[in-house]
C-alpha cells in the first residue's frame, strides 16, 4: 500500500451557498487547487439540488478540462420520493464515478466501479469486502474512526484492491436527521424553510447554556463547531495505509488550504510553515484533531493542538 500515489481530494460542498458563488468556487478550484479528485453534488438536502442544476455542466467541464477526476456524491439520507428521484437520476448517468452515501444507491451501482462515502457505516474488514464485491473501489471512512481502527482496517484488507480516504480538514459531520434544524432554529419546518440555511455558509453555530461553542447546524445535518485539521498526521496516516486525503469545503480560502496540505505531502512545507498558513484562514472555529486519538477534545482545549504543531 505504501507505493500508492498520495492524492488530495475535495469533498462535496455541504452547505447551501449562492449558486453563482458555488460555480465560481469550483472554477477557481479547477484552475488553482492541487487536488486530483473533486466530489460534486448535493449530499444533505434534495430540496437544494435544483438550485445548482444549471451550473453542473460548466463546472464538470471546467474541472475535467483541468485534469480533475469528478465523482458525484449521493445524498446522505434517502427517504422522500424527491430524494429517491435525485439518486436515481444521477446513478442513471454512466459517464461519471459515483460515491454512495446511503445504501439506497447501492443497487444501482452493483457491478460497476464506485466509491463509498463517509456517511456509510463502514467500520470493518468484512464490510469493506462486501462492498468491494459489488464494485466499490475507494472508501472514505466515517469521521468517528480513530487512527488505531483505521490502522486495523487497512492492515486487515491487504488482498482487496481498495483505497482508503480520510477527512483531514473541515467541520466534522456528526449526525443526520429527517428534521431540518436550520428551519427549526428560525421557527419553520423543512417544507416551509425558504432555504434559510443559505444564511450560514459554514453552518449555524450552537452554544451550550454556559456559552461554550459546541456544534454547527446545516439543514438536517449536525457538525462539530471545531474544524478537523490533521495536517500534522498525514505522514502517520500514509504509513498505516491511507492514500487519499479529503478536504471539506468551507467559506475560507480553500485553494490556500489545498496548497498547504499538498506542500506538506510533498515535503516542501514544514509543519510550522503549514500551521502558520492555516492559522491565517480566519475560520469561524478552532482546529482540533477530532477523533484521531479516540476521544475528541472540546473546543477551546483544541488550540493547543495547533500550537504544538507550530513548535
Amino acid at each position: 500500500m505504501g507505493d500508492r500515489a498520495v492524492e488530495l481530494t475535495l469533498g462535496p460542498v455541504l452547505f447551501n451557498w449562492p449558486a453563482d458563488q458555488w460555480r465560481d468556487f469550483y472554477f477557481r478550484i479547477a484552475d488553482e487547487a492541487p487536488v486530483t479528485t473533486v466530489y460534486l453534488g448535493e449530499v444533505i438536502c434534495s430540496k437544494r439540488a435544483p438550485l445548482f442544476a444549471s451550473h453542473y455542466e460548466e463546472v464538470v467541464e471546467r474541472l475535467s478540462a483541468r485534469g480533475k477526476t469528478v465523482v458525484f456524491s449521493m445524498l446522505s439520507e434517502v427517504a422522500l420520493n424527491l430524494d429517491r428521484k435525485l439518486v436515481d437520476s444521477v446513478c442513471a448517468s454512466e459517464d461519471h464515478l459515483i460515491e454512495a452515501n446511503d445504501a439506497s444507491a447501492l443497487p444501482r451501482l452493483q457491478g460497476r466501479p464506485h466509491h463509498i462515502g463517509p456517511f456509510m457505516n463502514v467500520y470493518n474488514e468484512r464490510s469493506v469486502a462486501v462492498l468491494a464485491r459489488g464494485g466499490a473501489q475507494n472508501f472514505c471512512l466515517p469521521v468517528e474512526m480513530p487512527a488505531r481502527t483505521i490502522r486495523a482496517l487497512c492492515a486487515g484488507t491487504p488482498d482487496l484492491d481498495a483505497t482508503f480516504e480520510v477527512l483531514v480538514f473541515g467541520r466534522m459531520p456528526l449526525a443526520l436527521s429527517a428534521r431540518c434544524y436550520h428551519a427549526r432554529a428560525h421557527g419553520r419546518t423543512k417544507d416551509t424553510c425558504q432555504f434559510v440555511c443559505e444564511k450560514d455558509p459554514d453552518g449555524l453555530e450552537l452554544r451550550t447554556l454556559n456559552g461554550q461553542p459546541f456544534l454547527a447546524v446545516n439543514g438536517i445535518q449536525t457538525l462539530s463547531y471545531d474544524f478537523l485539521n490533521l495536517i500534522d498526521r498525514l505522514q502517520e496516516l500514509q504509513e498505516i495505509g491511507v492514500s487519499r486525503f479529503r478536504l471539506s469545503p468551507h467559506g475560507c480560502d480553500m485553494v490556500r488550504v489545498a496548497t498547504t496540505f499538498r506542500g506538506v505531502l510533498d515535503g516542501t512545507l514544514t509543519a510550522a510553515q503549514a500551521a502558520a498558513a492555516l492559522t491565517g484562514l480566519n475560520l469561524p472555529g478552532p482546529f482540533s484533531n477530532g477523533f484521531y486519538n479516540g476521544k475528541p477534545c472540546p473546543a477551546g482545549a483544541i488550540l493547543a493542538h495547533v500550537k504544538d504543531a507550530e513548535s
Binding site: F119, E144, L176, G294
Partner: peptide, 19 residues
C-alpha cells in the same frame, strides 16, 4: 437523529454509539 448515523455522543465522550 437518524439511527446508526449519529456520532454526537461519541464526540462528547469518545465512546461510539455505533461501535
Amino acid at each position: 437523529m437518524a439511527e446508526g448515523r449519529c456520532s454526537l455522543s461519541a464526540y462528547a465522550t469518545g465512546l461510539s454509539t455505533n461501535m
